[in-house]
């Protein structure tokens, strides 16, 4: 049996260059180790307090360390994402379509750019939950449902953070590394082993923004069942539409394959018939005649002239 290709296509949404490493650098590297195809999308130009160009250069170097295949810079103004939500949504909608897993900050992640990027991805997800959503944290710990043990690849993450020394210079790269390590070591009081973790909230089934917020706030969010329902109906209808289209396509392709198989079968039958013909006495005589004729009557020879005259004489009478 043909082995199923288990590689995933991943996109990591980072509001600023460096967020992807702080929040999920180890996990990105683990995806790369598995052979997954990884895209990184940096939303802002990172130029509010620092030189955005230098930060981009660092980001590109870091992507090589982490095994990221492609980096996309959307260049929204740093610190002002909340003023560009519509444009951001349009840009991300086209971009994240088709990826199996989408990483983005969680919606309670302190920085306004992080909150906006999270809510934007969430609104895309609730309308069209055709991917798995994974939310990471940069600024604080949060309610997670997935712990990824990255102890074995922490050195890579640390190297990546060191590469971001300019981007993290406002706080100081060493201090940032210490803080990141602390979050990774103590994402909760409940972990029993002395390991380094990256934490995620994973929505692997259709969920509305409210449901995600409810989960993250331990159901403290006010629920509106009617709006939840409407959103779910809409999302289900979109998914049904997509499944139906894919099904129609699959059926058409299957029919095409069946047609080709039928044609192949017909060709095979013709080939068999031809082979039978080739082995028949008549064909062998015919073949022998045409093989021997140029030898007995060479073209342009006197013998050929006599032969032609004889044939035309026979045809005439």
């Amino acid at each position: 049996m043909e082995k199923k290709d288990e590689r995933n296509s991943i996109i990591v949404i980072a509001p600023h260059p460096d967020d992807e490493v702080l929040g999920c650098g180890g996990t990105i590297y683990k995806h790369a180790q598995k052979g997954d195809r990884i895209h990184l999308c940096v939303l802002t130009d990172g130029s509010k307090f620092l030189d955005g160009y230098r930060r981009k250069e660092e980001c590109l170097k870091v992507s090589q360390i982490l095994g990221i295949n492609e980096v996309i810079f959307l260049d929204f103004p740093d610190g002002q994402l909340e003023n560009h939500t519509q444009r951001l949504k349009s840009a991300l909608e086209g971009l994240i379509k088709g990826f199996q897993k989408v990483y983005t900050p969680h919606p309670l992640d302190h920085h306004p750019d992080h909150i906006t990027s999270s809510l934007t991805v969430l609104s895309i997800f609730e309308e069209d939950p055709s991917f798995e959503l994974r939310m990471y944290g940069v600024y604080n710990t949060f309610r997670y449902n997935l712990l990824v043990d990255v102890t074995d690849v922490y050195d890579i993450k640390k190297n990546a953070l060191l590469e971001y020394s300019y981007s993290l210079s406002l706080t100081g790269v060493e201090l940032m590394i210490q803080r990141t390590e602390a979050f990774m070591k103590y994402p909760t009081i409940n972990t029993s082993e002395n390991k380094l973790y990256e934490t995620f909230f994973v929505a692997d089934k259709p969920m509305t923004t409210n449901e995600v917020l409810s989960y993250l706030t331990y159901d403290l969010m006010c629920q509106d069942p009617h709006n939840q329902l409407l959103k779910k109906i809409r999302a289900t209808e979109i998914l049904i539409e997509k499944l139906d289209k894919e099904h129609t396509l699959r059926v058409a392709l299957e029919r095409e394959v069946a047609d080709y198989k039928e044609k192949m079968e017909r060709l095979r039958t013709c080939e068999e018939e031809l082979n039978k013909l080739k082995t028949s006495v008549f064909f062998r005589m015919y073949h022998a005649y045409h093989t021997l004729k140029p030898k007995i009557i060479p073209p342009g020879s006197l013998r050929e002239g006599i032969y032609k005259r004889l044939i035309s004489f026979i045809k005439r009478y």
């Binding site: 069942p225 329902l229 779910k232 109906i233 289900t236 209808e237 998914l239 049904i240 499944l243 139906d244 099904h247 129609t248």
Partner: peptide
């Protein structure tokens, strides 16, 4: 039809019926 199947199973079943059963 495949679409009819999906609508009945997911929209009517998993969404509509489960919602009413819980509510």
């Amino acid at each position: 039809g495949y679409r009819e199947y999906l609508v009945n199973k997911y929209l009517n079943g998993h969404l509509g019926e489960v919602f009413v059963l819980n509510a």
